[in-house]
């Protein structure tokens, strides 16, 4: 079994402009999805959602506010799952709710060394 980091990206503009009911439904579908992975014993870390604001440090002096809320592909959150192969990890990621809001999933095998 290998661990894979899933990075969820989407457009904050789309995600933020949802009604409370839509928000509720989305939270629920995320929970369902994460729990589905846990049920199959494929979840290493449920991960977290990220706040829209943050900083980018080019070096120790040049620090700017991240334009995360404006760009179309900002990182919304992450999880870590278990799979035997990249193919299986892709298969497992097919039900991810991020696709419903036009977002993407980046899968990266974690280097255990």
């Amino acid at each position: 079994m290998k661990d894979f980091l899933l990075i969820y990206r989407a457009d904050y503009g789309v995600v933020a402009n949802a009604s409370p009911e839509e928000m509720q439904t989305r939270t629920q579908s995320w929970m369902d999805w994460i729990a589905g992975l846990a049920a199959q014993n494929k979840l290493t870390d449920r991960g977290s959602r990220l706040m829209p604001q943050g900083k980018i440090m080019k070096n120790e002096e040049i620090i700017s506010d991240g334009p995360f809320a404006e760009i179309k592909e900002s990182i919304m959150g992450y999880s870590v799952i278990k799979a035997d192969s990249t193919e299986e990890a892709v298969q497992l990621s097919k039900g991810c709710p991020i696709f419903k809001v036009g977002g993407t999933v980046e899968l990266r095998e974690i280097n255990a060394m």
């Binding site: 929970m31 846990a38 049920a39 199959q40 014993n41 979840l43």
Partner: peptide, 17 residues
């Protein structure tokens, strides 16, 4: 169903799944 989702994240047992 929602409660089972949350339970699974605390108790990853076959019975709960």
């Amino acid at each position: 169903f929602y409660l089972y989702d949350q339970l699974l994240l605390i108790d990853q047992s076959p019975m709960v799944a």
